[in-house]
Each structure stands twice: as C-alpha cells, then as structure tokens.
Design a protein around this nucleic acid. Structure first.
Length: 578
RNA sequence: GCGCCCGUAGCUCAGCUGGAUAGAGCGCCGGACUUCGAAUCCGUAGGUCGCAGGUUCGAGUCCUGCCGGGCGCGCCA
C-alpha cells in the first residue's frame, strides 16, 4: 500500500502541475487513507489548491480526474478515479492490494512490519528500576510493561537493545533493612514485612536511627564490609523481582547498582567538573547545590541539591554519575521510562548533563495507575501487588479453560492471564492515567488480550486442519504457492479490509517506535484481530472451492504472521490452541 | 501561586502530521452455533468532543482564557 501510495502521489502531483500548481505546493500534496470504502482507498482533498488556482476545490477535483483518466497509469493498481465534491477519490484494484499485502507478509515472515530504522544502531532502555524495599505493584508494573514493549519494539526495528534496571540500593530505606536484619537471610516476601517493621522502629527508636545513619556514612566511605552487607540484602530483593518479571516475560540484560556509582572517586570527579564549570556552590547551610539558572526549569529555584550539609551525596549526584555511564554505553539511542512525577527531576538531570556537555536520555513519561480507592502507595498499603494480581488472573484463566472442558494447562493459563493484564495496560496512551478495576483488567471478552490469543489460536487451527485433511500432508509447507494465487477472487469488503489492515503494519510500527508509544501497537493488534473475525464469519475458507480456498488460506497465513509479529512486540505469547 | 499532563457515549478508551456523516470495547436491547473454535459475529439505542473565544476554506486535533482532575516545585529516591 505504501509503495502504491508513493507512486500514485507522484502521478497526482504531476497532474496538479499540469493544472498550473507550482512544484513546491505540488510536493506538499498527500494522499490520505479513506475511512469509508465509498470514498475509494486513497483520497486527495483539493482545498489547499483552491487559492493558488483561483478555482473552487470541486472544480479542481474534476479537472484532476480528467487528467488522471487520460494519464498513463499502466503498472499502477489504479482501477478508477471519482470525485466527491472537493475530494478526488482513487479506487485501487482489490486483487493488487490483497495480493501485494499477502506476498509482502509471507516473504518477510517474522520480520514483516519492520522498517529497520534501527539497523546497525545500539539502544539502551532503562525501565522498571523499582526500589528494593517494595514488591512490584501494578502502578510500578506499568513502567515495566511500557519499558519492555519499547525494548521489543526497538529490537523489531533493528536496534541492538540492552534493557537496564537501576537498583537503588543506597539510601535510608535500604540502610534500615540492613540494620534491622543483621545476619539473617529472609526471603523476598519476608523482606517486605520487615520493611514495614523497621519503618516503625526508625520512628520510635533513636538508637536504631543513629545506627542507620552510621551505616550510610560507612557505605559512602566505600567500606568493603558495609557494601557487602548492603549487597547481600539487596540481592534478595533483586532476585525476587527478577523472578516476578521473568514470569511475566520481562528480562533485563543489566542490573546496575547505585552503590557502584557512589565511590569517592565518582563523587570527587563530578563535584570537580561542576566546580570547574562554575555551576556548583555551597549554600548557607552547607549543602552542595548545582546552579541550573538559564535552563528554564518550572521550579521555584532553578537549582539541584546534590549533597547534604554533611557533604554526603544525594540521589541526583549518583544518578548523574550513572546516567553519564549510560550515555557512554548507548551512542545511538538512550531511553528511560519514568513516571510523570519525575518530569521536573528529569529536566534537572538533563540540564546537569548539559553542563557536562552530554545529552541526557530521552524520557518516556507515563501517568500513574489509580485504584478506585485512590492512588497506590506502598507506605499506606493501598496497593495491588503484581504477584497477587497475576495469581488471581491465572486462577480465572484456569476456570475458563475448565468451563470449556479442557484440562487446565499451566502454560496456557499463564499466557491468557498475562495477555489480559498486559493488554489492559498497554492499550492506553502513556500520558493517560489508568484507572484500575479488577473486573475490567480481568476481562477475557471484547477488546482484550485473550481475544487476541483466541484469534491467533483460531487462525492456527484453520491451518492445522487444512494441513491434516489435505493430501499433501507429507509436504513441509502445506500452504499453497503465494505467487500465482487467485487473489482476484477475494473481492469481498471483509477480505479487502483485512488485507489492507495487514499492509498497515510497517507504518504503524514505525510511528509507534518513533513516538515510543506501545498503545499504537496494541491498537493495531486489535484492529487486525477484529478485521479477521469479520472475514472469518463472512467467508468460508476450507469449504470453498480449491482456487478460492487456496487464496483465502494464504490470507489466513498472512494474518497469523502479522498477529504473531505484533503480539511479539507487546510481549504477549501467542498460543496455537487455547 | 507557578509549571507540565489529562478532560471524547452511562463506564473504560481510540482518533496518525487539522480534512468527508467523531470510532471501539463493556453495559442495555434484539438476532446468529447439525457446517473451518460462540473467549466469536451481526444489528439497535447512546456524544453540546469540559466551557468560552480565536486562527483556518475546514478544528476532537492549533492558539488564548476559564473550569475540573492528576503530578511536580531545595539536605526523599
């Protein structure tokens, strides 16, 4: 479709030129996709030409139609041209659209839909980065789903991508855990209870408070045994989170520890550099403050405090150090997924890096997940833990399987459950809040993950059935030859609409990758599945006469391929049967 | 107070660089399983696109103001 559009655009521009439109204006003309088959497949609104030609748009449309009717369009799949008032509507030959789409999909296979915009480039994506003192809840999990989808999306586009998880193992929360646990070895679950406990102790017990502060100071002084004690506790948490996200299909190539960026050398180097730039000063109370004047920050004071009055580092300083390291590792594309509450902060980090002559990562900001009872907060205990939600979703999936007389297969139940959760989150635009409702997120009907899986399983089932009942079962590829198929036989609205949907994928993926917007991909997955369902109900496949059956089988195979590719980007595992 | 994001059908959300009567899902009502998987499909009803101005041949989309919600604004991370 895209290549047809380019070619037809050229023809339309030439025709406009003949009417007296100058080259510059002609070059701006774009054919738009129509939303209604009555308007053809591609259209040109003629309004922009009215002023230049001093002619009514409808007249221009008619004049263009005349030119196109007599122009040489051999080799182009142009069937006919119509005008509808000020619109010039182009109708393409259905067999060309359908055949081209199917053959493009089948020949590219798993790579179909990629525009290879990242070929030969390296990208780094930091996401999730949940503090080790809390089990992932759904609010924080949104970061992981978005981040993982961006990772997959960039990989699909040809980037070599590393996913990084920044482990915030420095700070009072962790020190409290270290002080509270001592020599013990709790599990990840137990760690979370202990965290609540030590928080209370910290409030009440002054002796405990001092021991926590002392621990922090020793850590900053690069004391070996203290570092080891922190690492031991933190790794319980890292292991726990890694397992939880691995179950969800999310993997990280690197866990980067904040404490590794806390060494006296890091500290001194950064402070010296900022001093050399004349941007660092000590305020009345002895804090080290970075002067960000001139960066137009939406803040009362354009500053960033990087060290306490006792000169121990604050998070921003360690983060700058880490970010510099990431910048060096990702020359082509550097992305970080952050909540919307981090917007100003990220601008500050961006300014700080600018002072050092470096470019900060591009941030993908997302809005938070709200429960009906309000926002999630681990401190207030108002959370839905990812683990709990997943367990319940899997339980429900097993129930649905049993209701259909199947044995509850663990793999299938898990795939169904995760598809529901991931799709529920990924379908909404990053900057929109997600209001979480159990029933809605657990829904298996309508615009949901399970519907996508169902569509895929059905596509697979058709191909399986064909392979088993047909004579060429011994053949490796029971699929008909794509080259000479009778695409012209597939001229129903449903068949053409489905093929056009398949043809849209490269454009959709490119746009999603550029904007780093998972919901664009999610929307396309649904559009393909929905379009397929309509086709399925309208057109018999295996029962059709051989020529038509073969053509439709190719459409089915191509649809299955596209759905697999799109689901792959979303991190949703397709099922051959469910 | 200042800044950023959001406001589209009863609910949850799409709507690409402004372009033809604003689309889905859920829910409601009514249909379709002896035939390729009914976790499906088809149809009906349901919208002053928060409000008011402005730019434009044309605004859900761009600009300004206001209203409502979220988030942020100096020794937390």
């Amino acid at each position: 479709m895209a290549e047809h559009r380019d070619a037809l655009e050229a023809v339309v521009r030439a025709a406009a030129g003949e009417l007296g439109v100058d080259a510059e204006l002609a070059a701006q003309l774009r054919l738009t996709e129509t939303d209604d088959p009555e308007h053809g497949d591609l259209a040109l609104p003629c309004f922009p030409l009215a002023k230049a030609l001093r002619t009514a748009p409808a007249q221009i449309a008619l004049a263009l139609k005349e030119r196109l009717d007599t122009a040489d369009t051999s080799g182009l799949p142009l069937q006919r041209v119509e005008t509808a008032g000020p619109y010039l509507n182009l109708f393409l030959r259905a067999d060309a659209m359908v055949g081209d789409a199917i053959q493009a999909v089948l020949s590219a296979g798993d790579a179909y839909g990629s525009s290879r915009q990242g070929a030969g480039k390296r990208a780094l994506v930091e996401h999730t980065s949940i503090n080790p003192n809390a089990s992932p809840h759904l609010g924080r999990a949104r970061n992981a789903w978005i981040g993982d989808t961006i990772v997959r999306l960039l990989r699909f586009e040809g980037y070599e991508v590393d996913a990084h998880f920044f482990v915030n193992d420095v700070g009072k929360q962790i020190a409290m855990l270290v002080a509270g646990i001592g020599e013990g070895t709790p599990t990840f679950r137990e760690l979370l209870d202990i965290y609540i406990d030590v928080n209370r102790r910290f409030e009440a017990d002054e002796g405990f408070r001092t021991s926590v502060e002392r621990l922090l100071q020793r850590l900053e002084q690069d004391d070996g045994s203290t570092r080891a004690a922190f690492r031991r506790i933190v790794d319980i948490s890292v292991g726990g989170m890694e397992a939880i996200f691995a179950d969800a299909g999310v993997r990280y190539q690197h866990f980067d520890y904040e404490s590794d960026y806390l060494t006296p050398q890091h500290y001194r180097e950064l402070v010296d550099q900022f001093r050399a730039e004349g941007k660092l000063f000590e305020d009345d109370e002895g804090r080290l403050v970075l002067d960000l004047d001139g960066y137009d920050l939406p803040s009362r004071n354009p500053v960033l405090v990087v060290a306490r009055s006792d000169k121990t580092s604050l998070y921003p300083l360690r983060d700058i150090s880490y970010t510099l390291d990431k910048v060096r590792r990702a020359p082509d594309l550097n992305v970080i997924v952050l909540g919307e509450d981090q917007k100003l902060y990220h601008q500050q980090i961006t300014a700080a890096l600018d002072i050092l002559g470096m470019t900060a990562p591009r941030a993908v900001h997302y809005s938070y997940v709200l429960l009906e009872s309000g926002s999630m907060s681990s401190r207030e205990g108002n959370v839905v833990l990812l683990e709990d939600f997943v367990a319940e979703a899997k339980e429900k999936a097993r129930g649905e399987l049993e209701a259909r007389g199947q044995e509850p297969d663990e793999t299938v139940a898990s795939a169904v459950a995760y598809s529901a959760l991931k799709y529920a989150f990924l379908r909404v635009a990053n900057e929109k809040q997600v209001t979480f409702k159990w029933e809605a997120a657990m829904a298996f009907e309508g615009e949901t993950g399970p519907y996508l899986l169902y569509s895929y399983a059905r596509l697979s089932s058709i191909l399986r059935k064909h392979a088993s009942q047909d004579a060429h079962a011994a053949d490796d590829s029971p699929l008909p030859e794509a080259a000479g198929a009778a695409y012209h036989r597939m001229d129903s609205a449903e068949e053409v609409a489905l093929a056009k949907e398949l043809a849209r994928m490269p454009e959709v993926v490119a746009r999603a990758a550029l904007a780093r917007s998972p919901h664009v991909v999610a929307g396309h997955a649904y559009a393909v599945a929905k379009s397929f369902s309509a086709f399925y109900h309208a057109c018999p496949i295996l029962q059709s006469e051989p020529e038509l059956r073969d053509a439709r089988l190719l459409l089915v195979a191509a649809t299955r391929q596209v759905l697999a590719n799109v689901l792959g980007i979303l991190g949703i595992t397709p099922l051959e049967a469910m």
